[in-house]
Simulated assay, not measured.
Amino acid sequence: MMKWLKWLGLPAGIAMLIALALHGGMNDVLHAIGAAGFALLWLVPLHALPLLLDAQAWWLLLRKRASLPYLWWVATVREAVSRLLPVASIGGEFVGVRLARWKVDETSVVAGSVIVEVLVTMAVQYVFAALGLVMIIAQTGHDDLLFTIGAALLLSLPLPVVAFVLLRRGGLFHKIERWSARLPMSAHWGVERIGGAQLDAAIDTLLCEPFLLLRAFAWQFAGYLIGASEVYLALWMLGHPVSIGGAIAVEALTQAARHAAFFVPSGLGVQEAVVVLLARLFGVDEQTAFSLALVKRMREVVFGCLALASWQAAEIARNRHDAWRDEPMLKPVEQRRADSDDRRRSR
């Protein structure tokens, strides 16, 4: 089912993007972006700041077992994988667990911190979306959006609530482990190595610390607020500034719409349509609104590609280091003896 949604979502998103480009007038859009010039490139390093605050929350949940700069780098890779690669919206989390395991040995601890962090992120997204809705109503007076967007938020709320309840009750992953062990060919899947009981214990330990969860929530929420500065600065550079509240509203509900349309790869078309719609509510003309949507997409691609390139470089370097370290053990006994004799002669 998910595969079919992706196949349907991609052409639908592309069609929506083309329709926006034709309706907005690409010449005017490109002229607006060209007028802003290379100053728009400052949005790329700016994105590192909200990700740093997000990494701070993960650093707390991971009990500071890895350095904050390293987790910040992993956070950039996680976001790039989830947003640019065809892995739904959770592929970045799997990559994040793998990279964090380079510094922290306990798989259950790392995986547990990522799962709890995802729960915290979901809570932050709901609060941030509600804040954006309040900003729209307060600054534009569009009360009709209260019912539409509010109903959408309420209808999607049971999913994270159910996930939290299941995790809080404990034993979820241990039950999944026992169930999957009964399946045919499970011996070839390495099911016994999952460590469901240890993962459940790691999650339960974190969920039993409300103050820790609140601190993680605060750091992530601060990151989302600072992330709205991208909209504020981009519109200012494009010559159509909006208020801080307007920037928060555009960013908050764009994020909410993108996560709701997870079946559309990279949110292509959906993100652009929502940005244009929301920016128009704050008096931004259609060409500038679409320019903003393209600028956000270009920043995402540039930042994400840099993160993915750094990840691949790190994987290559690690593989080479492992190969160099294991090379002496792979040599035949006779070869190692010959090497030893050569070293003795050279002395």
Results as ranks from 00 to 15, higher is better:
Met16Leu: 07
Met16Glu: 02
Met16His: 00
Leu17Gln: 00
Leu17Glu: 00
Leu17Phe: 00
Leu17Trp: 00
Leu17Asp: 02
Leu17Met: 01
Leu17Ile: 01
Leu17Arg: 00
Ile18Gly: 04
Ile18Gln: 03
Ile18Leu: 12
Ala19Thr: 05
Ala19Asn: 03
Ala19Phe: 09
Ala19Arg: 11
Ala21Cys: 01
Ala21Arg: 01
Ala21Ser: 06
His23Leu: 11
Gly24His: 02
Gly24Met: 00
Gly24Asn: 08
Gly24Thr: 05
Gly24Leu: 02
Met26Asp: 13
Met26Thr: 12
Met26Pro: 01
Asn27Arg: 15
Asn27Cys: 13
Asn27Ile: 14
Asp28Lys: 09
Asp28Val: 06
Leu30Gln: 03
Leu30Lys: 14
Leu30Tyr: 09
Leu30Ser: 08
His31Tyr: 11
His31Asp: 14
Ala32Ser: 10
Ala32Asp: 10
Ile33Lys: 04
Ile33Phe: 00
Gly34Met: 08
Gly34Trp: 05
Ala35Gln: 05
Ala36Pro: 05
Ala36Gln: 11
Gly37Tyr: 05
Gly37Ile: 00
Phe38Asp: 14
Phe38Ile: 15
Ala39Cys: 11
Ala39Tyr: 13
Leu40Gln: 02
Leu41Phe: 10
Leu41Ser: 04
Trp42Tyr: 12
Trp42Thr: 14
Trp42Glu: 15
Trp42Pro: 10
Leu43Lys: 09
Leu43His: 07
Leu43Ile: 10
Leu43Asn: 06
Val44Pro: 02
Val44Ile: 03
Val44Tyr: 00
Val44Cys: 04
Pro45Tyr: 03
Pro45Phe: 06
Leu46Ser: 02
Leu46Pro: 03
Leu46Arg: 02
Leu46Gln: 04
Leu46Asn: 04
Leu46His: 06
His47Ala: 15
His47Ser: 15
His47Asp: 13
Ala48Ser: 12
Leu49Thr: 11
Leu49Phe: 15
Leu49Trp: 12
Leu52Arg: 07
Leu52Glu: 11
Leu52Asp: 12
Leu52Pro: 12
Leu52Tyr: 14
Leu53Met: 12
Asp54Pro: 10
Ala55Ile: 10
Ala55His: 10
Ala55Tyr: 14
Ala55Asn: 13
Gln56Asn: 13
Gln56Thr: 14
Trp58Ile: 00
Trp59Cys: 10
Leu60Cys: 05
Leu60Met: 08
Leu60Asn: 12
Leu61Asp: 02
Leu61Gln: 02
Leu61His: 01
Leu61Asn: 01
Leu61Trp: 01
Leu62Val: 10
Leu62Gln: 06
Leu62Gly: 08
Lys64Leu: 01
Lys64Pro: 10
Lys64Gly: 10
Arg65Trp: 06
Arg65Tyr: 04
Arg65Gln: 07
Ala66Thr: 04
Ala66Gln: 06
Ala66Ile: 11
Ala66Lys: 02
Ser67Asn: 08
Ser67Tyr: 10
Ser67Gly: 05
Leu68His: 14
Leu68Pro: 04
Pro69Ala: 05
Pro69Tyr: 01
Leu71Trp: 09
